[in-house]
Design a protein around this nucleic acid. Structure first.
Length: 521
RNA sequence: GACCGGUUCGUCUAGGGGUUAGGACACCGCCCUUUCACGGCGGCAACACGGGUUCAAAUCCCGUACCGGUUACCA
């Protein structure tokens, strides 16, 4: 029997990172076992489900690279089958009609009711007066149009048990499980019924989902048993918690919990996927690897290395530099600086495009692509100065140069803006540290520009000679000139070797910016 | 309250009877250097607590504490 798993989100908001991780684990397990990864949208809560949420979930899955197999199942399409199943159970005497009038409740009153019920100890789960109503009377009252819900008739004694692939043997006494409602009095099928029916119909072999469903599982097993169908294997996942070890929610924690936030804030999908995979699972057995490609994850993944304890997602509110978990940020930086340039380029292109910094000549396909680390050369093997390279070569080499200190793709258009536009901002701290502190630079930098003017080849060795001679002449330190120039040329205090910056920007821009007075005012 | 889980550095984790308790992130220091959030080297830092079992417990058992989940005619 081949493995069939499903990811079954309810479209009541954006894709939560915890859900994204659940989807990832399902995907990894399917790929690992050569199985099928299905997608089911659990949209039976009509009041809260929205198409927009569905779209956002689909976008998120696509972004993080989890393509599902087969067509998407919308649970609401199966409502008739769910109702039929409930009626079948009723006809077989495994469920009963509950004529207790429905209480009108809001989310708030429900929570209050749960707390209130908690206070009454030793509640008997079988005290429903309609549980043992004769079928004759039940049928009669129903025929009279009296509204009723259908509840599963849970046996008086016994227990449900199953072997969870993560948490091991799970047992629950029937006396701890109520006669759960299968069908609402308005005919609407409820979650546990719908899930079981759909999982049976979709021939799901492994249910991999959050640990918050652990107790639901006992109810669902009861339904499987009533239906006389063997339940699938269950694997429950530890939860992802907020820094205070509480629930990670949109209400409380805002957009850090939404997958789309990471897409919109310059994350490399593979990096975030890698991070998520390691939050609740590890390869074990002394493996000290952190960076995993998708193929490596599939290769290493197994249910028995999923952790049992919840993990804290350690972001820092009100700290822009640590706005999300440090390890996620680090991993993203790691991907940006080490991934093959060819894979990074499309991501950077999208970022620069959205900031209107991308120019079509960067895409010029006439010149061969820059491969990273190797200087571009003309046909006869002579290394060409950068400014003589084609636009595409210049662009690709520049991206390769500046990516080493970037944390997100946003940095290419923010800190990296000066490489692509004349319209860039100056960091106040950088100006204070590298320019205003040395007033002489006000005259020296334009003067340095004059020294560059007559240069025929504007390459690193030549530039170095000119700058060094200039520094000695002025009797100052090389750092003063270099750092001042860096601030003026790029607007920021950090970046690659200054000689590469000069060469990358080219003679013309270098001269122009050195003479500019903008930063000084 | 009841039922069910969980507890190794600040965080993610390895280790599951004998280890100087390992790695990663963060933080700190040194080196490299014209700057730097790159790179190199190093440092700080953990087995929740109490009993037992055992020659030996972070590891097995029991209890306590704390944290989490569930307890809907929500999903």
């Amino acid at each position: 029997m081949t493995t069939r798993v499903r990811f079954a989100p309810s479209p009541t908001g954006y894709l939560h990172i915890g859900s994204a991780r659940t989807a990832l684990y399902n995907y990894l397990y399917a790929k690992k076992t050569g199985g099928t990864f299905l997608l089911r949208i659990e949209d039976t809560d009509l009041a809260r489900s929205t198409d927009e949420s569905t779209r956002s979930i689909l976008d998120g899955l696509k972004w993080i690279g989890l393509d599902h197999d087969g067509t998407i199942v919308f649970q609401s399409d199966n409502a008739d089958k769910h109702r039929e199943t409930a009626r079948k159970l009723l006809a077989e005497g495994k469920a009963y009609r509950d004529f207790t009038p429905k209480e009108e409740q809001t989310d708030k009153t429900v929570k209050e009711a749960i707390v209130a019920r908690a206070r009454q100890a030793d509640k008997n789960m079988r005290d429903n007066p309609y549980r043992d109503l004769s079928s004759v009377e039940s049928d009669m009252r129903a025929a009279n149009g009296e509204p009723y819900a259908i509840r599963l008739k849970v046996a008086e004694t016994g227990k449900t048990s199953f072997e969870d692939a993560v948490y091991g043997l799970q047992e629950r006494d029937y006396s701890d499980t109520e006669d759960l409602v299968l069908l609402r009095s308005d005919g609407h099928p409820l979650y546990n019924l719908a899930v079981v029916c759909d999982d049976i119909e979709m021939e799901i072999t492994h249910v991999i989902r959050g640990q918050d469903h652990l107790t639901n599982t006992h109810k669902q097993i009861l339904i499987y048993e009533a239906l006389d169908v063997a339940p699938p294997t269950f694997a429950h996942l530890p939860l992802i918690l907020a820094p205070n070890k509480g629930k990670l929610s949109k209400r409380k924690h805002g957009e850090v919990v939404s997958l789309t936030t990471y897409r919109d804030n310059g994350f490399v999908p593979a990096a975030f996927r890698n991070y998520l995979a390691l939050l609740g699972w590890s390869a074990g057995s002394g493996e000290e690897k952190e960076i995993y490609s998708l193929d490596e994850l599939i290769e290493a993944f197994s249910l028995d290395h999923i952790h049992r304890s919840n993990a804290v997602f350690n972001f820092h509110e009100n700290d822009p530099r640590h706005w999300t978990d440090d390890k996620a940020l680090w991993m993203n930086a790691e991907y940006i600086r080490t991934m093959p340039l060819g894979e990074l380029l499309p991501l950077v292109k999208a970022e620069l495009r959205s900031s209107k910094l991308f120019r079509e000549e960067y895409d010029d396909t006439i010149s061969p692509p820059y491969e990273g680390g190797v200087a571009a050369a003309s046909a006869d093997g002579v290394v060409l100065p950068l400014q003589e390279l084609g636009s595409r070569d210049w662009y690709e080499r520049t991206i390769d140069l500046i990516r080493h200190r970037f944390f997100t793709l946003k940095d290419f258009s923010a800190q990296g803006r000066a490489y692509f536009s004349e319209d860039y901002d100056f960091d106040a701290a950088a100006i204070a540290k590298n320019l205003t502190k040395f007033p002489d630079l006000r005259d020296w930098l334009p003067e340095l520009a004059d020294r560059f003017e007559p240069m025929e080849t504007f390459t690193e060795p030549d530039i170095e000679m000119v700058v060094k001679a200039f520094t000695e002449e002025k009797g100052t330190k090389l750092g003063v000139i270099m750092n001042g120039a860096r601030t003026l040329l790029t607007g920021v205090a950090v970046g690659p070797s200054m000689l590469s910056v000069f060469e990358t920007l080219g003679k013309e821009k270098t001269i122009m910016r050195l003479k500019s007075r903008v930063a000084w005012n």
